[in-house]
Structures are given as C-alpha cells and as structure tokens.
Design a binder for these strands. Structure first.
Lengths: 221, 221
DNA sequence: TATCGTTTTACGGTTTCCCGTATAAAAACC
DNA sequence: GGTTTTTATACGGGAAACCGTAAAACGATA
C-alpha cells in the first residue's frame, strides 16, 4: 500500500473526505493542498527526503481567487509533476465525465486512475487506491463503457481548429487566410467546407451550430 | 442549535463530510439519503414523530441511475418538502454559481441558506448552519456581490428556446413554424432575427455559433 | 519524364442568412 | 374614441454559406 500521499483539491469538504478515506485505508502519512502550485512545491521538496510521495490524488478544476497561480488546473499539474517525479502514481478525482477528455488523461498525460465524483465515489476511491497500489489502473465503473466505445467519430486537430474558429465567430470564408498564416494545410475554402460536410454527415447533423454544441458537450473544444 | 437534520446528497464523499461537519457542531441526530424521493419519504415519516427534522441540507443536481425517481432534482425536492413541512429550514449545498438561479432559490423557493461547494466550503457550511439556527439566512461570501449585480445577460426562456433549436439543427427560417405550433409568441421570423441580433450585440458576438458555444459553456442549454 | 490516382483548389448556381426599412397590429395614454 | 408609443410582421437587396463540378497541384510509380 502507499506510504505517502498528496491531495490536491480546492474544495475543503471533498479534501476532508479524501483524508478520511485514506485513514480508513490505514494510510497515515497524507498531506493536502488547496492550490496546484502548493502541490508541486510539496512534491519537489519531498523528492530527496526520507518519504517522497508515491501517490498524488488531484482534482481537475481549481477555482481562481486572489492568489495568483502558475499552474491553473489539474492537467497542467499532472504534466509538471510527471517531469520531476516520473514514478509517482496519479489518481484523478473529478466530477468530469467527458469520455474524450478522460481518454486523453490516460493516453497523453499518463494518469493511473480516474474516479468520478458521483454516487458511490467513496467506495470507488478506495477501490482505485487499492488497484493503483497493486500496479493496476482504475476507472470508475460507470465510465468504462463510454470511454471504450470511442464515441463515434475521431476529431483531428484540423477539425478542432476549424470548429474552434467557428465557435469564436470567424467567418467560414475567412478561415482559409487563418490556416495559411499558421501553415495549416489544406487551406482552401473548399477543403474546409468538405471537412465540415464530412463531419456533419458522419454525425448526422445538418448545421454548424450542432457541431459546436456537440463538441462543447464532449469537451472537444 | 438544530436537533435533527436530513442530508440529501448523491455524492457519497460529500455526504460523509457533511455528516462529519454536523458531528463537529455536536448535532448527533442526522440522517442521510442519496435520492430525493428517499429524502421526502424520511421527512414525511418523521413529521408526527418525536423528532421531526428541523433542517434539510440538500444538493441541487442528482444523477440519474437505475432507480427511477419521482423527484428529479433539488429544486423540486425543496418545493415538495415545503408543502408538507413549511417550517423546516432549507440549506442548499451545491456547486452551482449562477447568480440568477441562486437568486430564484431565495425568492421563489424560499430557501434559508446557500453554500457553494468551493474552496472554503467546510467553514462556510458551519457558519451557515449556525446562522440558520439563529433564524438568519446565509449566502456564501463569494456569491454575495455577484447575486446582486445580476451578471452579463439574462436569457429568457424564449432566447433559450431559439438557441436550443439552432443547436439541434433547425433552420432559422423554420423556427417560426415551430414557435407557432407551440404557441410561443412572437413567432415571426423577423422577431427571431431581432432577438438573435440583440443577444449577439449585448455579448459582442457576430455569429450564432458563438452563442451556442457560450450557452453550452455556462450550462444555459 | 510520363502517367495514374489522389488531394486540393477554383468557380458558379442555389439556398439560407443577415439587415434595413416599411407596414401592420397591439398596448398605453390622454 | 383617437392618438401616440411600442411591438410584431412582411418584404427585399446583398452577403455568406452550401453544394456540385471541373480544373489544377501533388505524389507515387515505372
């Protein structure tokens, strides 16, 4: 089992229950921070000490307040931590439930587990910590299907660029000039139209507004 | 101080910390439910008993699962509870931070306190319970300003209908026929255009796609 | 280099959207 | 009841988006 755990969570109430959960698992050495910057600092400080952290439990969204932070959210914190402590296990504890996003966390940010803040999250969290301690990964049961099934369509970065521009108010006919300036190819208006049509056909949409709504819902943009 | 408290909260972790908070305040008689229907049942059952509940602490959003529920969310629960137990104090504990919505809770649904799930929510919750016990109302400090200032733009149900239709792929020119079928007035195309223009002007947008993205971001649709 | 196949771009016609103005209806006021 | 003010609808010209087709550019291969 883990010897030393760090909790990065800005909600006091949730932080308290996570600590209590650790106590239940007989993990006595746990520290907690309410800010991402503090979390990174704690980890850095204990790197060479007698008891470096072997598990980080972190939220994804942290609220801004008067204290200016270098690290804005959980994803950036994970990347920063991984750079200085590659072997620490990372368990994300968040209310997020967008499959595309969670998939990314495992594949691109190398997290070891994800527990969603939901009905049985206390039990879930214990199971997750246990699984991670045994070298396995963990994903909340209610998410397992949705992440696997790879929701219908794989958006390329090109697609995301186009839809983002639309959602920011860029005129379709002005997208080519933006693409050229950023050396993105193809940049022709017809190519943009073609790609949009293709996306809409696959997803059975007829309007750009639907695409934007869809991408917002699944955290793609 | 309160004698008997009921907690309606679907997240196990949060429910645990709320119970712990009550213990800290020496409130020993607390029950908890993970579903709205159960909460109403508990209150109804204890109405005539020796210790009817004098405080309800409830979340707003409850997730659906296999158990079919009559009461879908916190707002409906509050209304239902108020009908059978007009004197119970109601404290909402939620991550919600839309000023318009919170304002409504106090004015139209007669809640006594609102604590936002945020950085200092544990301290906040204790202060709130104490305030309510003394017959006062309570609102999280970070919300006090924003509720007053009624931020940005107030979407009417008419606005939301229009933007929802767009996000579902309805052609703008077909919106009038939908509005007529549902007896929504005004139903003219010009009126729809006018309203869309007005929204875009206020929010400094130029395209419908931006409106859809904005409404998705703030949970308006 | 020539040829084939694919991808990208250019162009034109049609539909939809955008926006201003004019008319019609309703509400408020005297 | 009549007038003013506000609100809703109708219409039309121009811009943007949509969609199919044709031409051009590109890549791989021989």
């Amino acid at each position: 089992m883990f010897k030393s755990v760090l909790i990065a969570e800005d909600q006091e109430m949730t932080s308290i229950s996570v600590r209590k959960t650790l106590e239940d698992l007989n993990i006595t050495r746990a520290e907690y921070t309410y800010y991402c910057d503090d979390a990174l600092m704690h980890i850095r400080k204990n790197l060479q000490g007698e008891a470096p952290f072997d598990l980080l439990i972190t939220d994804l969204s942290f609220e801004e307040d008067h204290r200016k932070q270098e690290i804005a959210g959980g994803v950036e914190l994970i990347d920063a931590v991984r750079k200085i402590a590659p072997n620490i296990k990372v368990l994300v504890f968040s209310a997020e439930n967008k499959p595309a996003l969670i998939d990314d966390l495992f594949k691109k940010h190398g997290i070891n587990g994800f527990v969603r803040k939901a009905r049985h999250d206390a039990k879930d969290l214990k199971l997750a910590i246990d699984a991670l301690a045994k070298g396995r990964t963990y994903l909340s049961p209610d998410l397992k299907q949705s992440v696997k099934q790879k929701n219908t369509f794989e958006f390329t970065s090109y697609d995301i660029t186009i839809i983002s521009l639309l959602s920011q108010g860029t005129l379709q006919k002005n997208i080519p000039s933006y693409l050229q300036e950023n050396d993105i190819k193809p940049s022709g208006l017809s190519s943009v139209e073609k790609r949009l049509n293709m996306m809409k056909e696959v997803l059975e949409f007829s309007k750009n507004e639907q695409l934007v709504a869809y991408c917002k819902d699944f955290g793609i943009i």
